[in-house]
Amino acid sequence: MLRKGFALAALGLAFIGGPTLAATSQEEPKAVHWSFEGPLGKFDQAQLQRGYKVYREVCSACHSMNLMSFRNLGQKGGPFFDPEVKNPNDNPFVKSIAKDYQIDDIDSETGDVVKRPGTSADRFPNPYPNEPAARASNGGALPPDMSDLVKAREGGPAYIYSILTGYEEAPKGMAVPTGKYYNPYMPGDVSGFWSLDPNKVPIGGFIAMPPPLAPDKVTFDDGTKSTVDQQAKDVVAFLTWVSDPKTEERKSFGLAVMIYLLIFSGLLYASYRRIWANVSH
């Protein structure tokens, strides 16, 4: 009875957890192995640093990262965490990164709007002053904020990676609108732009972002070969960390909790069998 019930419940969850199909179509994201996968997975700090560089030199030209402060880069688990420097605000890497940014501020004496070098406590500045400005510079499309990007997309890291590396020449018969790019991994419906067999509409959609990465576009300080694939993997790892900077803390805490609960359950079960030993039921 109990076992049957659990099987049913599992079945039910499987149903509910199944992918929901939309009217749009897209290619299944590519299968990538990430170091941060699984209950024991950890971020590779060198990869996070490379990923940050890709973000800094490529993405940040258009994409904001509103929820992140410079200090976050130096916190535990972050790309520039240094076990010697417990307080991320004092981390020398963080300080020098922050200094490179010019932050809007108001002069406390004159009230003028001024620019000043950033400090660890400042947030990453937005590349555009406001949303209309961002849209105007990007053909009407708003580059999404990157702080939650991986969490906020079905498919997570694999999806972002697939988009970054998945740009394709538009197939013959497809009229790509100006300022748009065809990407089979982008959810969309291109049937309105397809002039050939209506039963063979290509999968995927249009994206307003031009292919952002190119070989050697970013020079990695650790000598890693700067291919598009490498850049994409690194920046996705960085963005995954950005989405949930407490991932590693959560997993290690969780492991301890699970072990504790397993032992606790075992003890309670033994206690239970012992107490009930005298009762026929």
Binding site: Y260, L261, I263, F264, L267, L268, A270, S271, R274, I275, W276, A277, N278
Partner: peptide, 25 residues
């Protein structure tokens, strides 16, 4: 045979350990 000490309330090792674990949690 069950002897006189067979009270299920008996605080033997297992019960104490379980209680301690609960308090610890």
């Amino acid at each position: 045979h069950h002897t006189g000490g067979e009270d299920p309330n008996r605080r033997d090792f297992i019960h104490i350990a379980a209680t301690v674990a609960a308090v610890g949690a």
